[in-house]
Design a protein around this nucleic acid. Structure first.
Lengths: 362, 362
DNA sequence: CTGAAAGCGCTAACAT
DNA sequence: ATGTTAGCGCTTTCAG
């Protein structure tokens, strides 16, 4: 692609293509120091006399030197690349999370490689291999079900440090040396449902997407059960909508036609909640006048709607940022070993927003 | 980090950490071929006898060999990494676009590096530098205003091939050798507004975000003007809402209080449209009964709402996928040169959805 | 504090 | 068809 000639003496300064092909060796030459010193001037300035460092930096500037990270990463045997595997970005939860991840990683001068898995196991494996080939130092990821994930098993097997985001580890998961950053799914869901109960609701139905596949959906359902039982109410059968985002009016309609129709829905994510609200509207029902709907996630869009989407809010960007921080900390400590330290699962605070689509039962 | 010892003969097979530290040299050794042949068995199988290739692949399998892409990329002087710079992923438009980008790149065995710019020029420059240091072969990006973008100028200066997504090049932009993939913003906006006019609206107001900064907003506004003028109507002053997503009820309220209040809004993106609809509802107005709202983008969420968000739909994933394809094609042809070929701006078809939040004026 | 030299893992001439 | 050899750009011992 590029011509292999490079002038041994003074590289062309007013070159048409500045910064391209200028190596550290060129800089060293121009600064009259050895390659080693030039390198040190950037990576370990304290090992170099100030005047020398300045000469190097000046030369670098003059030549529009741009370090080739590939060379550094290859040599260093430490890429400073973090792999990120998220189910999708089309759910704003994860897009918000990415913001936190990106900011946090950039602040620590780490590079990122993002892949989306679509919760598809085959694709998860393929994308994981891709990341591993790039020799990522560690990973931040969200899986459908941490207890059943083959990617996590592989990561464990290969001793690649990682931190889960959103997946909340059970005690036994944490014992296996896994780390996670999430809210307390069960407790927060419980609180959300208790708010529904406090508003007067008794017949509350959970709506979930891939219920069997998602550990969080199950945890949130458990929280629902906690709340119901704590108030002497019998938990009802959850409604499972096949696609995470699909509006599936039929099941909702059937449910609402019954004499003991629910007065409130607790949806395990906001996108689902928005779909359910639309379904209810299409049935001629008003939200929250006739039925209340509570979501989960706290995506920014929920606050834009009218009425506002009542929901259990997670600090999405913070979950991402914190996951990166935890990972970096582990990387620094070099602990591939199981540490029985403080935590396995790091919990971040959630918040409730119960105005808007939640009201008193009719 | 890793111990530097590596057995010269047979690497440990049942090692605790398979695949880690196994290099192509180890594979070559195990397969009884030279390093070069081992390499060829993967990169250029046609240059190697089938039996030999099989030996190499078997050995690789046995040793859990995982190629270190860093080595390959460094040597090849061609990273097969594409840089992607998007404003944000929190607008679903770009999240959907990413899906197309990822699929398209992976299909061609290219790696990706994503950064978000938040439309912030300082951050744009910083993130660009980051990508350049990773020696991306090319870039797919969306900028606020292609005509005013310093990143594009830099990319041009450094002869880094890139394709714009969403930004639609004017004739002169295309003449400068730039490439883009988008819909026809002006024409599609015009058609959208004509649909509004066809529904009986006369007083139609455009709502936009960073109006001055966004080339697309201006192009869409031009389309609006086209439509109005074509029907003998005087274009009205646009409403500019500061943040792209903020709901800014005050300006809307003021407008609706006037005797000649608009009967329809054309919002230059869907998020804005959702915010405006909420604002209108808070004023006690019904959409589309009292006022109609037309968006632009066609994010999936719009179809989930009730009533559905009427909008000008862009093929978001396809825009991303096509941008990658175009870029790869340029890369293959190695054309850093200005080619006066077919296009500068590649246009993809848009579609209209005018049910839902658009109806007849009251 | 600075320099010389080795080499990270891989590919691509150039020879056979 | 296969082997030998020379690096890609950088960091890092190890000597001065």
């Amino acid at each position: 692609m590029a011509t292999s000639r490079r002038p041994e003496l003074q590289p062309c300064i007013a070159c048409a293509d500045p910064g391209h092909g200028v190596t550290l060796a060129d800089v060293a030459l121009a600064a009259q120091v050895s390659l080693a010193t030039a390198s040190r001037a950037f990576s370990h300035p304290q090992l170099v006399r100030e005047a020398t460092a300045k000469r190097v930096h000046d030369a670098a500037q003059r030549l529009s030197f741009r370090p080739n990270l590939l060379g550094a990463k290859l040599r260093a045997q430490q890429t400073r690349i973090l792999g990120v595997m998220l189910p999708t970005l089309e759910n704003a939860v994860f897009a918000e999370c990415w913001r936190g991840i990106e900011e946090s990683a950039m602040a620590s001068d780490y590079s990122l490689m993002l892949v989306t898995s679509g919760y598809d196991p085959a694709r998860e494996r393929e994308r994981l291999e891709y990341l591993l080939r790039h020799r990522v130092d560690g990973m931040v990821l969200t899986v459908a079900d941490a207890a059943e994930s083959t990617v996590l098993d592989q990561l464990d097997r290969e001793s690649v440090p990682y931190v889960l985001a959103y997946n909340q580890l059970s005690a036994q998961g944490a014992q296996r040396g896994r780390h996670s950053v999430s809210v307390d799914n069960r407790m927060s869901a419980c609180e959300g449902v208790e708010a529904l109960i406090a508003a007067g609701h008794r017949r509350i139905v959970v709506v979930s997407g891939a219920f069997m596949a998602s550990d969080r959906a199950r945890q949130r359902f458990a929280g629902y059960e906690d709340a119901m039982r704590a108030h002497g109410l019998a938990p009802l059968e959850p409604v499972c909508l096949p696609s995470h985002t699909a509006s599936n009016a039929a099941q909702i309609r059937e449910l609402m036609a019954r004499a003991d129709a629910p007065t409130a829905f607790f949806c395990t994510n906001d996108l689902l909640a928005i779909g359910v609200i639309s379904d209810l509207k299409r049935l001629g029902l008003h939200v929250p006048g006739d039925v209340s709907v509570l979501g989960y996630d706290g995506i920014a869009l929920g606050a834009l709607m009218e009425p506002q989407l009542a929901t259990v809010m997670q600090p999405n960007a913070e979950i991402g940022a914190q996951a990166v921080r935890q990972l970096l900390q582990r990387l620094k400590r070099g602990d591939n070993v199981r540490d029985d330290a403080a935590y396995g699962g790091y919990l971040l605070p959630h918040r409730l927003r119960v105005e808007g689509t939640v009201g008193a039962p009719p």
